[in-house]
Nucleic acid binder design. Sequence first.
RNA 1: GGCCUCAUAGUUCAACGGAUAGAACGGAAGUUUCCUAAACUUUAAAUAUAGGUUCGAUUCCUAUUGAGGCUACCA
Length: 595
Amino acid sequence: MIEQILTDKVMEAVKSLYQLDATAAQVQLQNTRKEFDGDITLVVFPFTRASRKSPETTAAEIGEFLKTNTAEVGDFNVIKGFLNLSIKKDYWLSFLSGNCNADRFGFLEKDAEQPIIVEYSSPNTNKPLHLGHIRNNLLGFSLSRILQAAGKNVVKVNLVNDRGIHICKSMLAWERWGNGETPESSGLKGDHLVGKYYVIFDKQYKEQIAALVSEGYNAEDAAKKAPLIVEAQQILQKWEAGDEETISLWKKMNGWVYEGFAVTYKTLGIEFDKTYYESQTYLLGKELVEKGVQQGVYSRREDGSVWIDLSAEGLDEKLLLRSDGTSVYMTQDMGTAMQRYEEFSPEQLIYVVGNEQEYHFNVLKVVLKHLGCAWAGSIYHLSYGMVELPAGKMKSREGTVVDADDLMQEMFDTSEAMARELGKIETFDDTEAHKLYRTIGLGALKYFILKVDPKKNMLFNPAESVDFNGNTGPFIQYTYARIKSVLRKADEAGFGVSAVDLNSVELLPQEKDLIRKVHDFPAVVLLAAEMHSPAVIANYAFELASEYNRFYHELTILKEDNMASRGLRLCLSQFTAKVIANSLWLLGIEVPERM
RNA sequence: GGCCUCAUAGUUCAACGGAUAGAACGGAAGUUUCCUAAACUUUAAAUAUAGGUUCGAUUCCUAUUGAGGCUACCA
């Protein structure tokens, strides 16, 4: 890539001109702004100290050096401290003809055996997935693909929270009010059925609390004393004691939930390499805590509970083991992290978890560090913000959550209505049309969520997301489909996508811009991987599609009578289509061959 | 109270410390009915406030204001 060549040359230039050993980071290259001449701009301010000359002079000297010593640099101009370099047409054209048939353009071959573990999804088994989980799942899955494309060996893991008081609540409510209802008998998806009883529990529980409060209890005591919660806790104790009946009900209901989740995951198009269950990991970590106590880095109180004082790190005191010797969330996470370290010795351990747990992960890292685990530094919490709706905030207790299955169905319906209205599906048979709705609806949903910087809270507007215009998934998919259509027509007309004849072809400024855009793709993938952000890819994909749309049309391509020029345009179209498809693949979005 | 994150056009989003802060949707004005398209062109419109750091700040630091989150022997 040209950036690498220039970086090396610039370092050579400042060495030769000013005896400065510059680092690659000091060489700041950026795309030249449209209003100036040139393709790539070097910011020369970092070198003025060594040159002891004005920015303009320094830039001119470096520019002269590059022009004489770099084959690719055709010319240069200087504006203030910015050195604008023009890259020769030949470079762009040979890049284009050399890569336009490479299917995996922009993707690096696997360069490391040491894996990166990405944990995401991690659902509770007491209720169906909702919009917040969708952001989690999309981020985790997309990030995994981006890291893969950047040459990493990625292991996608899911840690299912299948035990605890929450599932006991559903179990209790089902036993009491369920009348043996099953997914088959009710026609409900398993996870929805179990979620229904979780809601019933919550409602009844609230009523009990209210009753107790009216009898004079304060709210806190009432919440602890309500018979339902006491019973649920008894069920949890029975579960921990291995009571057969309890375990059997637990297995049955979790089984329903897994069937339901499998459907949701499949529809959403995400998958895992490995699934862990907390029922099998929740005891891990205790021996780590004991070890810490012996080493004197954690302290045991009189009541037997174990704590760590992190006030030196700006955090609080944190409980690691309860007085009755049972573990807490932190204990488990210490254990599972250690387990993964031992199993994979990963380069990085990424947790895709909402930002409300930032504190938890900060503590986790510090606690492990105190224990002497140097690898604690490889833990990365990909923290993401909440998803809000135009209607307002989602609160699971107030029933304003958006269910994942319902939302996806709504997206499919909307995309169908949209496609019908635009008359897009007249030539499609039912199966094709059905598939198209799903591709578009899902593309809209995924793109809308992934285009936003993960760390920011975001607002999800379903209607806006399926728009065929604007910064949306369907717009990009549509651009892809149109390019494919042009290529088909060209093929029918016998034009073909031939190699570009470098000597005779003229390159319009817009065409060069488009080539540059495509040329940037590999760098964009690396940046996205480094920043752990699919949003980088999403925004790039939109820019590329816009760039193509702004200038290229079927008419300009097919009605061009200059053979070389038409060949160039077809070649560039094909290349653009591939890069769009690759970008969308990184986001987990499918491309339709026609729409 | 303490800690963390965020704050950019009317709205939803961009901008490794770099040039005149980009788009999209929606406004306004105009040209069109030719491509798989109500499209195209033009236009108005924003860095919460006050300081600081430096060649240069939306970006880094400090304070203030506002929004959200965390601050459980829940997970």
